[in-house]
Design a protein around this nucleic acid. Structure first.
Lengths: 153, 153
DNA sequence: CTTAGAACGTTGCACGCGCATCTACATAGC
DNA sequence: GCTATGTAGATGCGCGTGCAACGTTCTAAG
C-alpha cells in the first residue's frame, strides 16, 4: 500500500490535486474581489505595495520585484505604470547601474496599503488561516517547504 | 501560544499563505508549459476535455462545465469555440431545454486527451504528488476538505 | 580601446478572461 | 391565453498578461 505512484495516479491523488486547484482559485478570487470592492486595488497591486513596503528604503529593482510578485518583466512594467499613474509608486534611477530602475513606494502608496491591509488579512484568515487549526497549519507549512525548495526561481 | 489570530496575523502565518500562492503558481505554470510544448494544449483546455471524458455520454451542459473548470460562462463560450474549431469538441442541442447546449467530446478530442494525459500526470506527480509522502498527502486532503466545504458555489 | 555577449527595462502584439448586455427560451402567476 | 421574472449561451468591450523584439548599458575578452 506504499508505492504505486510510478506509472499512474490513484483517483484519490487526482482528487487532492483538483481540490488544491479549486481551493486556490476560490481563495484568490474572493480575496481579490474584497480588495477591489473595498479599496479598488487588485491583488497584484496589493502584492507590489506590500513587497515594496517590506523592502529597505521602500524600494526594489524592477527585476527583483517582478520575481517576488510572480509577474513577467513586461507585466510588471505595465502594473508599475498604473500604480505610478495613481501616485502609489514612483520610478527612480539606480545610481550604481544606469540600466536599472527602482520602484519606490510613495507616502500615498503606503497609506493605501495600510488602508487595504485589514481587508487583506481578514480575507486570508477567513478563507484560509482560520479554517485550519495550529497543527494543520504546521503540517501545511512543512508540506509547502517541500513543495517549494529554497532553489526557486 | 494557541490563540492569537483574531486581530492580526503572525508573520509565520503570512509566510505560509505566501508560500501557498507561490507553490500554486509555480506548479500550474510548469504544468501548463509542458502541456503547451508537448501537446499544444492549454491547461484550461485539458481540464475541459478531462471533465467531458468523465461525464456520461462525454457531454456536459455549458453551464455545468463552466463551473467545473472554474470559468465564467463567457470564458467557456470562447474556449469551446476554440476547441470546436480544432475539432476536439462539438456543440449539440439539448432536447429537454431548447436554451441549453451540450459540449460533447469528439473522438479526436478523446484521442488528444489520451495523448496529453501522461504529460499531465507526470507534471502533477513531479511538482506535487511525489514530493509528499503518503501521510502528508492524507493531511493535505484533510485540510483541503476543510478549506473547500461541500457547499461550494 | 574595441568588440561580443549578457542583463535591464520597455514596447508591439495577440491572446484569454470577466463584466455587462443581449436574445431566446422557460417557468410562474394571473 | 398573456405577461413577468428567471435562466442558458453568445457577443461587445476593456483589461491584464506573456512572448518576442528593441534600445540601452554593463561586463568580459582581446
Amino acid at each position: 500500500m506504499a508505492s504505486e505512484s510510478r506509472d499512474s495516479i490513484s483517483s484519490e491523488e487526482l482528487v487532492v490535486w483538483r481540490m488544491l486547484q479549486r481551493a486556490q482559485v476560490r481563495i484568490t478570487r474572493l480575496l481579490e474581489a474584497d480588495l477591489l470592492v473595498e479599496h479598488d486595488l487588485a491583488l497584484a497591486s496589493y502584492d507590489v505595495l506590500m513587497q515594496l513596503s517590506e523592502s529597505p528604503d521602500r524600494r526594489l529593482r524592477m527585476n527583483d520585484l517582478a520575481e517576488r510578485v510572480l509577474l513577467s518583466r513586461s507585466g510588471l512594467t505595465r502594473l508599475i505604470d498604473r500604480l505610478q499613474r495613481d501616485g502609489l509608486v514612483e520610478r527612480e534611477a539606480c545610481a550604481s547601474d544606469a540600466r536599472g530602475l527602482f520602484a519606490v513606494l510613495t507616502d500615498a502608496g503606503a497609506l493605501r496599503l495600510a488602508e487595504a491591509t485589514p481587508t487583506y488579512l481578514r480575507g486570508i484568515r477567513a478563507q484560509f488561516l482560520d479554517v485550519l487549526d495550529a497543527t494543520e497549519l504546521r503540517q501545511c507549512a512543512a508540506m509547502l517547504n517541500k513543495l517549494f525548495p529554497a532553489s526557486d526561481t
